[in-house]
Design a protein around this nucleic acid. Sequence first.
DNA 1: TGACATTTGTTCATATATCGCACAATGTCT
DNA 2: AGACATTGTGCGATATATGAACAAATGTCA
Lengths: 251, 251
Amino acid sequence: MQETDFVSGFARGLKVIEAFGEATPKLTIADVARATELDRATARRCLLTLAELGYADHDGKFFVLTPKILRLGHAYLSATPLPHIVQPFLDKLSEEVHQSASASVLDGTEIVYIARASQKRVMSINLMPGSRLPAYCASMGRVMLAALPEEEARVLLEQTVLKAFTPNTKTDPAELMQELARVRDQGFAVIDQELELGLCSIAVPLTNDRGRVIAALNIGAPAAQVSADEMAERYLQPLKAVAKSLKPMLR
Amino acid sequence: MQETDFVSGFARGLKVIEAFGEATPKLTIADVARATELDRATARRCLLTLAELGYADHDGKFFVLTPKILRLGHAYLSATPLPHIVQPFLDKLSEEVHQSASASVLDGTEIVYIARASQKRVMSINLMPGSRLPAYCASMGRVMLAALPEEEARVLLEQTVLKAFTPNTKTDPAELMQELARVRDQGFAVIDQELELGLCSIAVPLTNDRGRVIAALNIGAPAAQVSADEMAERYLQPLKAVAKSLKPMLR
DNA sequence: TGACATTTGTTCATATATCGCACAATGTCT
DNA sequence: AGACATTGTGCGATATATGAACAAATGTCA
């Protein structure tokens, strides 16, 4: 196949970078070849290219990414206006309600944090811009999935491994689709310890000036402090207010 | 030039990604070609490849990066143990001294934040993992530059645009080299409003189990609360304690 | 321990895809 | 409309991917 508008060497290289992950911080050439389904010779050339450019280190056997790789993601975070616009609003919101507030966008089946104002840590995992969570069991994920055409949401759910993180996690696709319908109707989503025991969260969609949902805002709170029922009572108005004041600023 | 172990298409593509930045969120093909010094046809192919893979969006004229790009940097943040190891220590430290605490590594002439525990915001800019600051005027940058062979530090300073962010910013290379020598001797660096008026910070090096400096830790405080002189009195011991307890865990 | 079986990294020749150039087409100003 | 800048496209020269072959390292079992 000869696609003249496609640089496969580039695409292969990006695949190689993505081969590195939480569970796989250091990889051999063969590891990468397996993970990416590239030929070993090709994987080797990509890795050596990364090393040559300073994006990776190489001790003879293992390859490790260097912080220079962060320049790539940073290109997005600093280039995209959304994180910058949203951040001060999150700060104010977070201070006002004394809970963590975040913003995220949807990337496939996952939500990606683009800004966050955290109060004392309640979650075991540490969320920061760039962090990812499965959309189906995160409050922001629910509102963004709900904003999609039903068919699209269904396809995304089909692509997701619906794992139960806690006994509360909803993992039945039909039940989830129903939940999405409710979220769409009521205009917000509440998650009651589906991702982590002890953690509740509520999210609202963030729409741009043309009414398109482009992101989501949420507030997370310890379940011990705030019951799931109380989440909406306490936090829905502040969240909606922020979303409303942001709306005209977003394009 | 025929380097058999180098995929230039990949290298070119990475250059294209880095062409996007704070000042240049949306770029045309010609913009990218100029910024990267690539041929227009090549820039176009790389951009179309990014779009095809979902790393960029394309409205016919402008290209914009999508959040999927964050996967690349995320590969590092989640793959590298350092951020995960350091984070809880920063949280504890930050709470103990009621100030923001951060960790960063050196990437060329810049420091890159890899973890951060922030208290109320004092800085005008929002720092987060992946954020970059020039090394010469940041406390963590000073200690990491000081840990390099003098010659190397000198070269890095030569490569840096030594801009005065405030009237306090040290921009004379000779003076900076002298400052680095002092930092090396005393084992920490204090910055008195060189990056931003109203902000002081103190940093110590973070060494691994073999004694190599691999990162830096710092505490930042509002100058109104804590004078530069007090920084060391108050925060040096806590910082050193954290660095010491981390040392055996780092390789 | 020693011999065999695997896995891994590297090299090479060749088929193939990409690069950069020059030109055409389109869009954008005054 | 004319001038300018930007984008799209075919083609030859050049660089790259492929897969097999080999060497080195590693693991395995008696």
